[in-house]
Design a protein around this nucleic acid. Structure first.
Lengths: 375, 375
DNA sequence: AGGTGTTTGTAAAACGTTTATATTCGCACC
DNA sequence: GGTGCGAATATAAACGTTTTACAAACACCT
């Protein structure tokens, strides 16, 4: 212990000794400098001074107990508490080259399904000490890129990508996973097998939905898709066509309505459908939001669901069972998808590579009252 | 220019000269070290070497053009591009003591109204170069605290708080705004006037909703509240009572059902209402989700909306107009609330104090088909 | 006493920037 | 041919931590 330390510590104590315990603890809660001249900023250095140890010891006491005797550890902890220390994570992050953030790149937070996924992501991330940066892209590729850049610029340690395209260019000679940022693909698939993927089996799910309608005696089945560029949508379409073919039914192009995963999408697509002369007896909507827009339009046009036309949705958003009629739909394990994405990503960041990359979670057909058996 | 620089630069170039332009630009897109022995990490230092200037000059070239001649600036930029430089924001953040993040503390991302607000926040934040950290609290006060701590630990520069309680203790002697973290209150009000507040006039809005029902001839009006601890809810309740009183109507406690802003809340509360012998002719739901749960239960129990019972909601979530029947509700400028919160917060962070703290945004009664005139 | 570990602690060098201050340079001015 | 000045650039000190390498202290054997 050299004189410098002692002096400092004395000065520091002197600056505070007049204060009551209450005041100190108030300060402890708020780490914002005030202009009163009393230096509020407390870092590892100030603690070291007060505890009369070196800053290395202070750091160890926090990060590496066991490297330090119980006695000094206690001293340090007390000093820290008295001074109301909060570590400066900016510094920690720089030093350890970890931001403690992951970025979730999604097309739209306000979408019911997406926000459920996000919720799952956030839960796991938080439980493992990470924070979630919101990357709402509104479908813009440029924004996807911008958010992905956060890992280049070290603001995030990894990416959960709910999009069908990679947010960075990939050179042919750079396909080794070590060269790539930690990324996991949620619900959508970029086509790059080297990244873990969490999704449901959209093809099978769409087949299940379609088969349900077929079982119910429907032959003329229309479809309202989401964004046709997305893999989820393409897969669902493939599943639909597959199921129709297997049943020996036609799935003519005129019954396939290309739309978007939204209420408005469902609304306008349904209008199109009703304009045609041969009306389908059932409509398979690729999302519950579409289904709601669809049922609304049907109702507006004087059709009853399911008496005149059956409607089946996809996702099982929280609202689905409250609709009038309650919506038959394919349930996705929404929150679990998010949770699993986060788990895989954080493992990846920790250097743990999953033994398999393709994680297909179970879906489930929920038959409610928007579909009816034809007689 | 001393020898050290020249040497370094020579070495660096030597290490790269064999590569094609294509390879280099691939690298430029991905900043992740590979193990091949070639040093990929490129910082300000490497640029300085290649451009044969000092690191200070490089920094100025980016951050402070004008401090540097056009010629050298160009040199630096070229070197940066060739090397595929991305600034390490961890370092920038530490040095400048800014994280570039704001944290949005909200009870639940998956709630339709909240996710709309978030979307507004994100838009503004992004346009001003900030990122949004998601603070989903599930209503837990501890989590509110944890997220608020992100500004103490410098991971966030400010807080948007959608809660009625402050996430930190406030000493009596610390009420000066300079000592407090930048925070703006959205939709809810902590009672601390020193923080900007963005909300609608919940009292007036609830009065408008109630008056609408009264205009339609309803006298027995039940209410399903949200979380009664929240200020939005208390204000709406006050507005309801006020409107009833003004009309000379009774608002007995038995008609006030304390619930939560959720589908399930609406469902169970409505069940309670139907149990009573004197049924109300109208139900004022404090959120659209409640209203949907409510209408669902009414339908289940054989009541027709609005023929038997009128229902009015609150929020005007995207779904509201698609419900069956389309929901009469109070529209909130959801996204604008978020946008204004973000604007105020970022201004605050920039040291610009708003001239007024209380920002009341306009609401609007939207009469659709879930309410009916009594004859 | 001397040797050999094992704890416990410290000094100092990072991490990659920004920025205050210093230096250099060219040029105009008397 | 100084002198002074502005512009352009460089040096070096931060920012607040973690971590490596080393030293001191102590304990435990011979």
């Amino acid at each position: 212990m050299n004189i410098r330390w002692s002096k400092r510590s004395a000065w520091l104590l002197a600056g505070r000794e007049g204060e009551t315990a209450r005041k100190l603890s108030d300060r402890a809660l708020l780490q914002f400098t005030n202009k009163s001249g009393v230096m509020l900023k407390v870092g590892i250095k100030e603690i070291a001074a007060r505890a009369e140890v070196s800053i290395a010891t202070v750091s160890h006491a926090f990060r590496n107990p066991g490297r330090v005797s119980d006695a000094t550890r206690k001293k340090v902890l007390e000093a820290a508490k008295a001074l109301g220390y909060t570590p400066n994570n900016l510094a920690v992050n720089l030093r350890t080259a970890k931001s403690g953030n992951i970025v979730a790149i999604i097309p739209d937070v306000a979408d019911s399904h997406n926000s459920g996924v996000i919720k799952g992501i956030e839960k796991i991330a938080h439980s493992r000490g990470y924070s979630v940066l919101l990357g709402d892209t509104q479908g813009s590729e440029q924004r996807e890129r911008e958010f992905a850049n956060m890992v280049s610029s070290r603001q995030a340690d990894g990416i959960i990508l709910m999009s069908h395209r990679l947010p960075f260019a990939l050179g042919k000679n750079l396909l080794k996973i070590e060269d790539l940022p930690p990324l996991v693909n949620g619900s959508e698939f970029t086509g790059h097998e080297e990244f873990p993927l969490v999704a449901i089996d959209d093809v099978q799910a769409a087949m299940d939905a379609t088969s349900h309608l077929i079982d119910y005696g429907h032959k003329d089945i229309a479809v309202i898709t989401g964004d046709i560029n997305s893999t989820s949508c393409r897969n669902r379409l493939a599943g639909f066509k597959g199921a129709m073919a297997r049943a020996g039914l036609k799935a003519p192009e005129r019954l396939i309505n290309y739309s978007s995963y939204s209420l408005e999408g469902g609304e306008t697509a349904t209008r199109q459908i009703l304009l045609q002369k041969n009306r389908p007896t059932a409509i398979f909507c690729f999302s519950d939001e579409i289904a709601l827009g669809c049922m609304y339009t049907l109702r507006q046009s004087g059709f009853s669901v399911p008496d005149d036309i059956s409607v089946i949705g996809f996702d099982n958003i929280a609202f689905a069972r409250y609709f009038a009629p309650p919506l038959t739909t394919i349930a996705q394990p929404t929150e679990e998808i998010g949770a699993m994405c986060a788990t895989l990503l954080l493992d990846l960041i920790d250097g743990k590579k999953p033994e398999k990359n393709r994680h297909i979670l179970p879906h489930k057909l929920l038959v409610r009252e928007s579909t009816r058996r034809l007689n």
